[in-house]
């Protein structure tokens, strides 16, 4: 566990630069996915996070999430945060069992920072994506009992100088997405919206609007996804990563975009329309 005054000999041993490997050795009780669960479904016992969307644009990538966590038909929390910076050039959004997912992201954040400090260099974006795979895979037992964690991972690849998005399944399978994607209960509706609105040449500001539109559409048709809460001024979390690093948009910035989107929906409740024929831009 947490050592006393003198550093234990195992701390002074060189070699391991993975924090989760070190944890498995020193304090396995702190690792998620190592707990024995009794038989049965536990899915309804804990809050679930819902919709996350991601999209790339020239020079970067965006990740955004709604603010709702549900427990069955109950709204467990209306201002939960589900998009986290995992290091300077990457971020993850979580869908699935909120408690386990937040713990997994905390471990993943520490893992990346630990590697960076021990090795003096950062992992490649693919390396980071693979580490996240391993963490998800270790949760497979719980996923089979209804406590699945399915994150969306996005980052700026400094080697390729472009933004990239990775989606995952419960077995830790990792899939690189082109352009845009969504995960979570409202992802079908969000993806439909993204499909019609996304263009590869959108600017950073346009991609922010795109994400807010997609989350609005998800909330429109999925009861577990939270729409913009105008009365409480609760709007999605939006994280943008470019060559200059990651930045979470301030509440005011997102609120301004959300207000414009809501104003547009007052006259067109279904949002912007795409042309019926032709590949041309609307």
């Amino acid at each position: 566990m947490i050592p006393g005054p003198r550093l234990p000999a195992s701390y002074l041993q060189p070699g391991v630069s993975s924090f989760s490997d070190f944890l498995a050795d020193q304090a396995p009780d702190l690792l998620p996915g190592r707990r024995a669960l009794p038989q049965g479904q536990a899915g309804d016992l804990a809050p679930h996070g819902t919709t996350i969307v991601g999209a790339t644009f020239p020079g970067g990538v965006l990740l955004a999430g709604d603010r709702r966590a549900t427990m069955g038909n109950i709204i467990a929390q209306r201002d939960i945060e589900k998009v986290f910076a995992t290091d300077e050039y990457s971020a993850a959004g979580i869908a699935g069992t909120a408690g386990l997912a937040i713990e997994m992201i905390r471990l993943f954040q520490t893992e990346l920072e630990h590697y960076e400090k021990i090795e003096g260099t950062t992992l490649s974006l693919d390396g980071k994506a693979n580490r996240l795979s391993a963490l998800i895979r270790s949760n497979l037992g719980m996923a089979m009992q209804g406590l699945a964690v399915v994150p969306l991972f996005a980052g700026f690849d400094l080697g390729d100088a472009r933004g990239r998005i990775f989606s995952y399944d419960v077995t830790g399978g990792r899939y690189e997405e082109t352009g845009y994607t969504a995960v979570g209960s409202g992802s079908m509706f969000a993806r439909g919206s993204l499909k019609k609105l996304y263009r590869p040449d959108l600017t950073e500001a346009e991609v922010v609007t795109l994400a807010v539109q997609a989350l609005y559409d998800a909330a429109d048709d999925d009861s577990a996804t939270g729409g913009p809460d105008v009365a409480r001024r609760i709007f999605p979390i939006v994280h943008v990563i470019t060559a200059e690093g990651g930045r979470r948009l301030s509440g005011d910035e997102v609120a301004a975009v959300a207000d414009r989107v809501i104003a547009g929906r007052m006259s067109h409740p279904d949002g912007p329309t795409a042309p019926l024929t032709g590949g041309g831009h609307a």
């Binding site: 947490i2 550093l7 701390y11 002074l12 924090f19 944890l23 020193q26 630990h114 400090k117 021990i118």
Partner: peptide, 14 residues
Amino acid sequence: RIAGVRLADMRGYA
């Protein structure tokens, strides 16, 4: 140094 990073990360995580 490595032991210090491990100690700090362990505390910060726990």
